[in-house]
Design a binder for these strands. Structure first.
Length: 293
DNA sequence: CACCATGTTCCTTG
DNA sequence: CCAAGGAACATGGT
Protein backbone atom coordinates (compact mmCIF):
# COMPACT_ATOMS: atom_id res chain seq x y z
CA UNK A 1 0.00 0.00 0.00
CA UNK A 2 2.86 2.44 -0.43
CA UNK A 3 3.60 5.79 -2.06
CA UNK A 4 2.78 9.05 -0.43
CA UNK A 5 -0.95 9.30 -1.17
CA UNK A 6 -1.79 5.91 0.28
CA UNK A 7 0.19 6.64 3.41
CA UNK A 8 -1.46 10.04 3.72
CA UNK A 9 -4.92 8.52 3.49
CA UNK A 10 -4.01 5.95 6.08
CA UNK A 11 -2.75 8.66 8.42
CA UNK A 12 -5.99 10.60 8.09
CA UNK A 13 -8.04 7.52 8.72
CA UNK A 14 -6.06 5.89 11.49
CA UNK A 15 -4.95 9.00 13.33
CA UNK A 16 -8.32 9.90 14.87
CA UNK A 17 -9.05 6.27 15.69
CA UNK A 18 -5.83 5.83 17.60
CA UNK A 19 -5.77 9.11 19.43
CA UNK A 20 -6.15 8.61 23.15
CA UNK A 21 -5.86 4.85 22.97
CA UNK A 22 -3.45 3.17 25.34
CA UNK A 23 -1.25 0.27 24.36
CA UNK A 24 -1.68 -2.64 26.73
CA UNK A 25 0.09 -5.43 24.92
CA UNK A 26 2.70 -5.73 22.23
CA UNK A 27 3.03 -8.92 20.24
CA UNK A 28 5.87 -9.29 17.77
CA UNK A 29 5.41 -12.12 15.32
CA UNK A 30 8.17 -11.22 12.92
CA UNK A 31 11.05 -9.48 14.61
CA UNK A 32 12.57 -8.59 11.27
CA UNK A 33 10.19 -5.66 10.87
CA UNK A 34 11.60 -4.00 13.97
CA UNK A 35 14.82 -3.21 12.17
CA UNK A 36 17.50 -2.18 14.63
CA UNK A 37 15.06 -1.97 17.50
CA UNK A 38 15.05 -5.00 19.75
CA UNK A 39 11.80 -6.63 20.73
CA UNK A 40 12.49 -5.89 24.34
CA UNK A 41 13.16 -2.25 23.64
CA UNK A 42 9.96 -1.89 21.65
CA UNK A 43 7.85 -3.47 24.34
CA UNK A 44 9.40 -1.36 27.05
CA UNK A 45 8.67 1.80 25.09
CA UNK A 46 5.16 0.95 23.98
CA UNK A 47 3.52 -0.82 26.89
CA UNK A 48 1.36 1.64 28.74
CA UNK A 49 1.97 4.42 26.23
CA UNK A 50 -0.85 6.40 24.65
CA UNK A 51 -1.24 7.48 21.06
CA UNK A 52 -1.30 11.25 20.85
CA UNK A 53 -1.00 11.80 17.13
CA UNK A 54 -0.20 10.33 13.76
CA UNK A 55 1.64 12.13 11.00
CA UNK A 56 3.48 11.29 7.82
CA UNK A 57 6.92 12.03 6.42
CA UNK A 58 7.45 10.80 2.87
CA UNK A 59 6.20 7.23 2.93
CA UNK A 60 6.83 6.89 6.65
CA UNK A 61 4.21 6.90 9.37
CA UNK A 62 5.06 8.72 12.58
CA UNK A 63 3.08 7.54 15.58
CA UNK A 64 3.40 9.99 18.45
CA UNK A 65 3.22 8.38 21.86
CA UNK A 66 3.17 9.63 25.41
CA UNK A 67 4.63 7.28 27.96
CA UNK A 68 2.50 5.83 30.70
CA UNK A 69 4.33 7.28 33.63
CA UNK A 70 4.78 10.85 32.61
CA UNK A 71 5.47 13.23 29.84
CA UNK A 72 8.10 11.24 28.06
CA UNK A 73 7.11 11.17 24.41
CA UNK A 74 8.27 8.78 21.80
CA UNK A 75 7.87 8.35 18.09
CA UNK A 76 7.10 4.99 16.61
CA UNK A 77 8.14 4.89 12.97
CA UNK A 78 6.25 2.81 10.44
CA UNK A 79 6.86 2.01 6.80
CA UNK A 80 4.61 -0.20 4.72
CA UNK A 81 7.21 -1.46 2.28
CA UNK A 82 5.47 -2.98 -0.72
CA UNK A 83 2.66 -4.89 0.91
CA UNK A 84 2.23 -3.57 4.43
CA UNK A 85 -1.14 -2.70 5.91
CA UNK A 86 -2.20 -1.28 9.25
CA UNK A 87 -5.68 -1.28 10.67
CA UNK A 88 -7.76 -1.92 13.74
CA UNK A 89 -9.50 -5.17 14.50
CA UNK A 90 -11.78 -6.22 17.29
CA UNK A 91 -9.99 -8.06 20.05
CA UNK A 92 -11.26 -11.48 19.05
CA UNK A 93 -11.06 -11.17 15.29
CA UNK A 94 -8.67 -13.66 13.71
CA UNK A 95 -5.30 -12.29 12.71
CA UNK A 96 -4.20 -12.45 9.08
CA UNK A 97 -1.57 -14.89 7.96
CA UNK A 98 1.30 -12.44 7.65
CA UNK A 99 0.79 -10.47 10.81
CA UNK A 100 4.05 -8.87 11.85
CA UNK A 101 3.07 -6.92 14.97
CA UNK A 102 -0.07 -6.62 17.07
CA UNK A 103 -0.70 -3.81 19.54
CA UNK A 104 -3.39 -4.61 22.08
CA UNK A 105 -5.52 -1.54 22.80
CA UNK A 106 -8.13 -3.01 25.10
CA UNK A 107 -11.20 -3.96 23.10
CA UNK A 108 -9.32 -3.32 19.87
CA UNK A 109 -6.01 -4.29 18.38
CA UNK A 110 -3.90 -2.47 15.88
CA UNK A 111 -2.57 -4.95 13.35
CA UNK A 112 0.44 -4.45 11.18
CA UNK A 113 0.49 -7.14 8.51
CA UNK A 114 2.94 -7.36 5.66
CA UNK A 115 2.99 -10.23 3.21
CA UNK A 116 6.53 -9.66 2.10
CA UNK A 117 7.83 -8.17 5.34
CA UNK A 118 9.66 -5.38 3.56
CA UNK A 119 8.09 -2.77 5.83
CA UNK A 120 9.13 -1.58 9.28
CA UNK A 121 7.72 -0.73 12.65
CA UNK A 122 10.55 0.62 14.72
CA UNK A 123 11.81 3.18 17.18
CA UNK A 124 14.73 3.93 14.93
CA UNK A 125 14.18 7.24 13.19
CA UNK A 126 17.48 7.33 11.36
CA UNK A 127 15.97 6.94 7.91
CA UNK A 128 13.71 9.93 8.42
CA UNK A 129 16.70 12.21 8.73
CA UNK A 130 17.84 11.41 5.22
CA UNK A 131 14.59 12.33 3.51
CA UNK A 132 14.31 15.22 1.12
CA UNK A 133 11.51 17.78 1.25
CA UNK A 134 7.83 16.93 1.17
CA UNK A 135 6.65 17.28 -2.42
CA UNK A 136 3.47 18.98 -1.24
CA UNK A 137 5.27 21.14 1.30
CA UNK A 138 6.68 24.64 1.08
CA UNK A 139 10.28 23.44 0.94
CA UNK A 140 9.87 21.73 -2.40
CA UNK A 141 10.45 24.90 -4.35
CA UNK A 142 11.22 25.26 -8.01
CA UNK A 143 14.63 26.60 -7.09
CA UNK A 144 15.41 23.62 -4.90
CA UNK A 145 14.22 21.13 -7.50
CA UNK A 146 16.20 22.77 -10.28
CA UNK A 147 19.33 22.90 -8.16
CA UNK A 148 19.01 19.27 -7.11
CA UNK A 149 18.48 18.05 -10.66
CA UNK A 150 21.31 20.08 -12.07
CA UNK A 151 23.85 18.08 -10.11
CA UNK A 152 22.99 14.70 -11.57
CA UNK A 153 23.28 13.00 -14.91
CA UNK A 154 21.05 10.13 -13.85
CA UNK A 155 17.85 9.52 -15.73
CA UNK A 156 15.08 11.71 -14.37
CA UNK A 157 12.83 8.74 -13.61
CA UNK A 158 15.45 7.26 -11.33
CA UNK A 159 16.02 10.58 -9.62
CA UNK A 160 12.33 10.86 -8.79
CA UNK A 161 12.59 7.65 -6.79
CA UNK A 162 15.45 9.07 -4.76
CA UNK A 163 13.86 9.81 -1.39
CA UNK A 164 16.67 12.16 -0.45
CA UNK A 165 15.74 14.37 -3.38
CA UNK A 166 12.03 14.49 -2.69
CA UNK A 167 10.21 12.23 -0.22
CA UNK A 168 7.24 10.11 -1.14
CA UNK A 169 7.23 9.68 -4.90
CA UNK A 170 7.20 6.03 -5.87
CA UNK A 171 7.36 3.97 -9.02
CA UNK A 172 3.78 4.51 -10.08
CA UNK A 173 3.50 8.24 -9.61
CA UNK A 174 6.96 8.85 -11.05
CA UNK A 175 5.78 7.40 -14.35
CA UNK A 176 2.53 9.30 -14.15
CA UNK A 177 4.15 12.65 -13.39
CA UNK A 178 6.63 12.29 -16.25
CA UNK A 179 3.86 11.44 -18.66
CA UNK A 180 1.82 14.45 -17.61
CA UNK A 181 4.89 16.62 -18.01
CA UNK A 182 5.68 15.18 -21.44
CA UNK A 183 9.22 14.34 -20.37
CA UNK A 184 11.13 11.20 -21.34
CA UNK A 185 11.96 9.02 -18.32
CA UNK A 186 15.42 8.56 -19.81
CA UNK A 187 16.29 12.21 -20.00
CA UNK A 188 19.29 13.00 -17.81
CA UNK A 189 18.26 15.05 -14.78
CA UNK A 190 20.71 17.81 -15.64
CA UNK A 191 19.37 18.04 -19.18
CA UNK A 192 15.90 19.19 -18.25
CA UNK A 193 15.19 22.72 -19.38
CA UNK A 194 14.05 25.28 -16.85
CA UNK A 195 10.58 25.02 -18.27
CA UNK A 196 10.60 21.24 -17.96
CA UNK A 197 11.68 21.44 -14.32
CA UNK A 198 8.81 23.76 -13.58
CA UNK A 199 6.28 21.60 -15.34
CA UNK A 200 7.55 18.44 -13.69
CA UNK A 201 7.40 19.97 -10.24
CA UNK A 202 3.81 20.89 -10.90
CA UNK A 203 2.79 17.50 -12.32
CA UNK A 204 4.38 15.72 -9.35
CA UNK A 205 2.33 17.81 -6.98
CA UNK A 206 -0.81 17.52 -9.06
CA UNK A 207 -0.64 13.77 -9.42
CA UNK A 208 -0.08 13.26 -5.69
CA UNK A 209 -2.81 15.68 -4.69
CA UNK A 210 -5.26 14.12 -7.06
CA UNK A 211 -4.52 10.65 -5.71
CA UNK A 212 -5.05 11.86 -2.16
CA UNK A 213 -8.32 13.46 -3.18
CA UNK A 214 -9.37 10.26 -4.85
CA UNK A 215 -8.40 8.16 -1.84
CA UNK A 216 -10.44 10.47 0.35
CA UNK A 217 -13.59 9.74 -1.58
CA UNK A 218 -13.21 6.02 -2.19
CA UNK A 219 -14.90 3.59 0.18
CA UNK A 220 -11.63 2.07 1.33
CA UNK A 221 -11.62 -0.95 3.51
CA UNK A 222 -9.45 -0.41 6.53
CA UNK A 223 -10.87 -3.23 8.56
CA UNK A 224 -8.93 -5.89 6.77
CA UNK A 225 -11.53 -8.49 5.84
CA UNK A 226 -11.29 -7.80 2.16
CA UNK A 227 -8.31 -6.89 0.12
CA UNK A 228 -9.79 -3.94 -1.68
CA UNK A 229 -8.25 -1.28 0.47
CA UNK A 230 -4.64 -0.77 -0.41
CA UNK A 231 -4.31 0.08 -4.03
CA UNK A 232 -6.76 2.84 -4.38
CA UNK A 233 -5.14 4.10 -7.52
CA UNK A 234 -6.77 1.15 -9.21
CA UNK A 235 -10.35 0.43 -9.75
CA UNK A 236 -12.97 3.05 -9.74
CA UNK A 237 -16.58 3.73 -9.72
CA UNK A 238 -15.60 6.37 -12.19
CA UNK A 239 -18.92 6.58 -13.87
CA UNK A 240 -19.01 9.50 -16.27
CA UNK A 241 -17.61 8.49 -19.44
CA UNK A 242 -15.18 8.97 -22.13
CA UNK A 243 -12.01 10.03 -20.46
CA UNK A 244 -11.39 8.72 -16.97
CA UNK A 245 -9.07 11.27 -15.40
CA UNK A 246 -8.98 9.37 -12.17
CA UNK A 247 -7.24 6.37 -13.62
CA UNK A 248 -3.56 5.86 -14.18
CA UNK A 249 -2.56 7.16 -17.57
CA UNK A 250 0.54 5.09 -18.31
CA UNK A 251 1.47 2.86 -15.39
CA UNK A 252 0.87 -0.81 -16.18
CA UNK A 253 -0.63 0.11 -19.54
CA UNK A 254 2.03 -1.41 -21.78
CA UNK A 255 0.74 -1.95 -25.29
CA UNK A 256 -2.41 0.06 -24.73
CA UNK A 257 -2.92 3.24 -26.73
CA UNK A 258 -1.78 6.48 -25.16
CA UNK A 259 -4.84 8.36 -23.98
CA UNK A 260 -3.46 11.49 -25.54
CA UNK A 261 -1.94 10.41 -28.87
CA UNK A 262 -2.87 6.72 -29.32
CA UNK A 263 0.75 5.58 -29.58
CA UNK A 264 1.13 2.26 -27.70
CA UNK A 265 2.53 2.71 -24.19
CA UNK A 266 5.95 1.15 -23.72
CA UNK A 267 7.64 -0.40 -20.74
CA UNK A 268 11.33 -0.13 -19.99
CA UNK A 269 13.53 -1.14 -17.10
CA UNK A 270 15.44 1.46 -15.13
CA UNK A 271 17.28 0.67 -11.92
CA UNK A 272 15.59 -2.73 -12.01
CA UNK A 273 12.13 -1.14 -11.92
CA UNK A 274 9.50 -0.84 -14.59
CA UNK A 275 8.92 2.50 -16.21
CA UNK A 276 5.87 3.07 -18.39
CA UNK A 277 5.76 5.92 -20.84
CA UNK A 278 4.41 7.09 -24.16
CA UNK A 279 7.14 7.21 -26.81
CA UNK A 280 5.05 9.69 -28.74
CA UNK A 281 4.41 12.22 -25.98
CA UNK A 282 7.65 11.78 -24.04
CA UNK A 283 10.60 12.29 -26.34
CA UNK A 284 14.17 13.17 -25.52
CA UNK A 285 14.70 14.96 -28.77
CA UNK A 286 12.05 17.46 -29.76
CA UNK A 287 9.93 16.22 -32.58
CA UNK A 288 11.31 17.07 -35.97
CA UNK A 289 9.03 19.14 -38.11
CA UNK A 290 7.56 16.73 -40.56
CA UNK A 291 8.09 17.61 -44.14
CA UNK A 292 5.64 15.88 -46.37
CA UNK A 293 6.91 13.75 -49.18
C1' DC B 1 8.95 -23.15 -14.39
C1' DA B 2 9.16 -18.10 -15.79
C1' DC B 3 8.48 -13.42 -14.79
C1' DC B 4 6.36 -9.70 -12.42
C1' DA B 5 5.14 -6.78 -8.17
C1' DT B 6 3.39 0.05 -4.69
C1' DG B 7 10.29 -0.21 -1.57
C1' DT B 8 14.84 0.22 0.20
C1' DT B 9 19.56 -1.25 1.33
C1' DC B 10 23.74 -3.30 0.43
C1' DC B 11 27.39 -4.90 -2.43
C1' DT B 12 30.29 -5.00 -6.46
C1' DT B 13 32.41 -2.96 -10.31
C1' DG B 14 34.31 0.70 -12.90
C1' DC C 1 34.29 9.56 -3.32
C1' DC C 2 30.76 8.74 -7.13
C1' DA C 3 27.70 6.34 -10.52
C1' DA C 4 25.59 2.32 -12.27
C1' DG C 5 23.94 -2.15 -12.03
C1' DG C 6 22.50 -5.97 -9.66
C1' DA C 7 21.10 -8.85 -5.86
C1' DA C 8 18.86 -9.29 -1.74
C1' DC C 9 14.93 -9.22 1.33
C1' DA C 10 9.95 -12.70 1.20
C1' DT C 11 5.69 -13.94 -0.67
C1' DG C 12 2.24 -14.22 -3.96
C1' DG C 13 -0.08 -13.57 -8.59
C1' DT C 14 -0.39 -14.63 -13.43
Amino acid sequence: MPELPEVEILVRHLGPLLKGKRIRDVEVRRAKVLGRTSERELKAALRGAMFTGLTRRGKYLLFELRGAVGRKSRTLVGHLGMTGRMYLLAKNDPLPKHTAVVLGLGSLRMVYEDTRYFGRLTLDGEEIQKLGPEPLGADFTGEYFAFALKRSSQAIKIKLLDQTLVAGVGNIYASEALFLAGISPRLAANKLSEAQVKVLRRTIRDVLKKAIRRGSTLPLNFAGEEKSDGLFYYGSESGAGDFDHERLLVYDRKGQPCLRCKTPIERLTQAARSTFYCPGCQRIQPRVKSVDG
